[in-house]
Design a binder for these strands. Sequence first.
DNA 1: AGGCGCTTGTGAAGGCGTGCACAAATCGCG
DNA 2: CGCGATTTGTGCACGCCTTCACAAGCGCCT
Lengths: 248, 248
Amino acid sequence: MSQQRHGSTPGEADGVPAFPDLPEATIARLPEYLRALHHLAETGAETVSSEGLAAAAGVNSAKLRKDLSHLGSYGTRGVGYDVALLVDQIEYILGLDKNRAVCLVGVGNLGHALAGYAGFASRGFRVVALFDADPKKVGEDINGLAVQHIDDLQRVAAEESIAIGVIATPPGTAQSVADALVAAGVTSILNFAPGVLSVPSNVDVRKVDLAIELQILSFHEHRKASLTALPGGRVPATGNSDQEAVGS
Amino acid sequence: MSQQRHGSTPGEADGVPAFPDLPEATIARLPEYLRALHHLAETGAETVSSEGLAAAAGVNSAKLRKDLSHLGSYGTRGVGYDVALLVDQIEYILGLDKNRAVCLVGVGNLGHALAGYAGFASRGFRVVALFDADPKKVGEDINGLAVQHIDDLQRVAAEESIAIGVIATPPGTAQSVADALVAAGVTSILNFAPGVLSVPSNVDVRKVDLAIELQILSFHEHRKASLTALPGGRVPATGNSDQEAVGS
DNA sequence: AGGCGCTTGTGAAGGCGTGCACAAATCGCG
DNA sequence: CGCGATTTGTGCACGCCTTCACAAGCGCCT
Ligand SMILES: NC(=O)c1ccc[n+]([C@@H]2O[C@H](COP(=O)([O-])OP(=O)(O)OC[C@H]3O[C@@H](n4cnc5c(N)ncnc54)[C@H](O)[C@@H]3O)[C@@H](O)[C@H]2O)c1
Ligand SMILES: NC(=O)c1ccc[n+]([C@@H]2O[C@H](COP(=O)([O-])OP(=O)(O)OC[C@H]3O[C@@H](n4cnc5c(N)ncnc54)[C@H](O)[C@@H]3O)[C@@H](O)[C@H]2O)c1
């Protein structure tokens, strides 16, 4: 595989700062911490303890401290973490200071909702282009952005240097759209279409599949039902690692 | 769905069949296997090898075999797995034979798209009710289903025995909606609003947060960029556990 | 200045998940 | 009827992640 020795945090050529290689599990939690921190900042909090931030993010405080320790020592013992400083740190690590350009392919039912979603811009992303294959959709104005034809993807992507693409087309066309995105230089894809995408190894794909989420919930329903029917009527907590039962 | 013999988990009252406790990671992959199997069934395949199914689902074949072995021995050495049988098995385990009733709260931008989504019904779920707090939305007909007022949730949930609720309201109201769902007897929640929900321990919550997905992609963009700027121009593959670079 | 309480950062242990490698089992064919 | 080809099921080792527990560090109060 890819072994790559990065010197850890300290000394680095000044153009490109050091880049710690964080555990995947930590990276997946950083956005949650960031959201909690922004919320805290709005309430005027200057600092926050690991306990407090952990509660706000729905995780164990030890896990939070270990996660943050991977970024470096940005806390003060006896006091806590400086909220503003930590926000900057996490945003830097996540690369959110770049205001990344995103394009969306497939302006149907779902794509329409996504295109109008304000949560993108507020979290460091700019939707700069919408594409569809349907001539009737092309030209349509959504939230101040005109839908363009998929054939223009290549050109537009180059002009706007789009690095992230979102796929919201029917499952059957998802692979060909992914291929087009890759050909246009996109190196990160968020896919809403069910199914497996095949892409070069330097391209990252994340997938969101509602049906999968529901089916996992269904499993737990099934499990709970079969347990309550048994002697001990007590329903034990799920082994689910997600947030749950956060005592507030 | 008739009687099924699970080799494991012996001695059980016959009304409720044995229920193997599967690893969380396995459960999360079963829906993906199921989708791949349905696809195979459509192409007329009678059986499939672990290698073939693994490729279709975008996972390692050893992992797939271990996952399936947790459900019992439903394969035949030298031949493979019986597609139809495996479909039934997985659907049974996931509780999809129950055609579970789902309600959706918050018929806004996103909720509207979800309400019209055909992928629910085709995968074993029935959206039986839509709720909103906005009087202007109440009464609106979406895909043959009338939007009802959130105050009717309690009553409707009891009538339809709804076990799964989907939250698509603004973040600020998500917690109160969750409380209402729980009060109405819902024991599984799929939450699209950013933030942490607090629910009793017998309620399962899964969350879908687009911004988090994009931020994770952004991190990898940042990482890739900082690596290409360094001596070794080669960009290594991500540690991402998701599907990626599946040799077509 | 010194002590005290609080909080971070981390070493160590345990658990979970993954992937390899191979024995066991089954089928088809000569 | 036996043999080889094929594929499952799994024991095992390894690495990642989580969690505990505590020493080290910091600020405040006296
Ligand atoms: N609607 C939902 O709530 C929902 C939920 C989960 C997943 N999904 C998935 O998201 C995807 C989109 O769902 P939808 O309901 O919006 O479907 P849709 O049919 O309403 O929209 C699909 C759009 O993609 C366009 N399109 C088709 N082929 C294209 C191509 N090659 N290039 C560019 N555009 C193309 C179509 O013109 C159409 O506008 C589907 O894969 C669906 O399974 C949808
Ligand atoms: N639109 C998207 O693409 C998108 C993407 C990701 C996440 N989200 C999240 O999904 C949620 C909904 O997004 P949206 O764009 O659909 O917002 P929206 O404002 O368009 O819709 C919200 C709907 O919820 C209803 N509502 C508000 N309070 C309610 C209550 N107490 N009970 C019942 N209904 C209530 C409102 O009347 C409105 O119809 C938000 O939390 C958003 O952050 C949206």
